[in-house]
Amino acid sequence: MDAHHALRERIARIERQRPVDAPALVALGAGDVDRALGGGLARARLHEIFAAERDETAGAAGFAAMLACLMLPAGAPVLWLRQEEAERQGGRLHAPGLAEIGLDPARLVLAVLPDAVTLLRAAADVVRCAEVGAVVIELWRQPQALDLTASRRLAVAAEASGVTALMLRAQAEPGPSAAQTRWSVRAAPSIALEAQAPGNTMLDVELLRQRGRPSGGRWRLEWDREAARFGQAAAGGTAASGAVAAAAERGSADGAAAFRLAG
């Protein structure tokens, strides 16, 4: 038995050159998701987030920002790598919007790169910097440069440096990759506040794949900024958090709507 164990260790040494410690898991907050993930999402790994459809980019970007909030060690900076094309077509990243999600814009460093090749090269550099807490690598469409090798390179670098890498893919189909988990994200109707106001960010999240565990599972998650965790939405629930509301008549068409004191 001992010989068997020693042999295994030797193989591991040859394959990886160094022992890989079990990754630190960060619970997302929603019980079912954490159970499916075996406790939570792994730090220092590569995770892929796909926008489920062409026009779901903002939802996927929001999910990436939320995960970055969760995975970030205290005080560490986040790097967000974008293509110029994304800035043009998807709109630029808006600092107050990031703050509204809970990610302090002062901790965010944005890098805008001309194409996918330079972006991947920069990403490989950034993932190696141990000072960085998390990296969001935003890639549009299906660049040639992003193959299994590139993805594996990022994954290995993330393991070595302890940086959590979040690969955000817009207008793309999942391909072979070395990512720990792969998600598909789309927006979901929020739980309305008073007067039919849109409520907290609600996302429809599907776990497409994960390494070493059964994949599959689709949940509706509501992001709670103050607690920095996801909540699992119960169907037909009421607002989880709401502003001070006052029931009053309003002279609108239906007459019955209440109003909300926002801001």
Binding site: G91, L93, H94, G97, E100, E226, G263
Partner: peptide, 13 residues
């Protein structure tokens, strides 16, 4: 951000 409020400013502008 104002506590208890949903996001009032967009992520992409």
């Amino acid at each position: 951000p104002v506590p208890g409020e949903p996001p009032l400013r967009p992520l992409h502008l």
